[in-house]
Design a protein around this nucleic acid. Structure first.
Lengths: 137, 137
DNA sequence: CCGCGATTTGAGAACGATTCTCATTAGCCT
DNA sequence: AGGCTAATGAGAATCGTTCTCAAATCGCGG
């Protein structure tokens, strides 16, 4: 018997889908704990690791060093455009970049190349909000 | 008075230059502590943060969540091709990718975009070594 | 429907990296 | 040399993540 179905794992999967963009394990745990029974932090971590391993979720390291997760719609390889303020995420394709990465690695004799290509910025909404706040000061 | 010159900062800069590739703050501290007077861990972190802020060093998050630093030869913006086995790092230019990142961010209404573009792989040497070992089994 | 064994869970401890605190040290300018 | 102040270092504090282990739970066979 390899894998059991528990309501906890299901809840984590749901919460991950509901989130608009990347979320940290910590905030996911907080959300889940608020809305209902006391799910354990360790369980959230385990569930997320599991989902990531099965390719049902994406994970990346935020510049602040936190691990962020996101439900992954396209199972294939893809990249992200992430709002550093609200976490909104846009999945982007980058065929050109794929090719470039592959060629660059080969040109330098590297094998089994993986690449990390993500863009962090402020989405239109957050940029506007920040401008508004700046004006107030 | 904004910035003072201390031998500690100098040592950190040296140690960073001596390293072949990316190193963690921890291992840098270990190295420095071994070779001489007891430099403080906090000081190493402060020096690294300073160097990174001034553009004299690059920093990135390893997949394991550690922050890695490297002395940066070209002051401009650039990317890396990193051997996941030995840490060897090649600085690469990616003008095309810069443009692509910028355009992509703009197209989605994002501002102040930064991007992370790094390639991890096995350098020729490590790939050969791994083949040799596989043959032995 | 019941029981059994293996898997999961949850609370908290353990851990590793990074940051903070604060008394002490040591640049830099006059 | 003397004073002002930034920088240092030791350890505590913080934060995210993983580990431990007893207790709860799942899912199968009966």
């Amino acid at each position: 018997m390899a894998q059991r179905n528990t309501w906890q794992r299901e809840r984590v999967r749901e919460a991950l889908s509901d989130a608009r963009g990347f979320v940290s394990a910590q905030s996911l745990h907080a959300t889940l704990r608020d809305e209902n029974t006391g799910i354990g932090l360790a369980t959230v971590y385990r569930a997320l690791a599991g989902l990531a391993a099965q390719g049902e979720a994406d994970s990346l390291q935020s510049p602040e060093g936190e691990a962020l997760y996101r439900a992954c719609s396209s199972t294939g390889h893809h990249h992200h455009l992430i709002c550093r303020s609200c976490g909104l995420t846009v999945e982007i394709e980058a065929t050109d970049v794929e090719q470039w990465a592959k060629r660059t690695a080969e040109r330098h004799g590297f094998r089994d190349a993986e690449h990390v290509v993500d863009i962090f910025g402020l989405c239109a909404t957050c940029a506007a909000a920040r401008d508004a706040q700046r004006d107030a000061n």
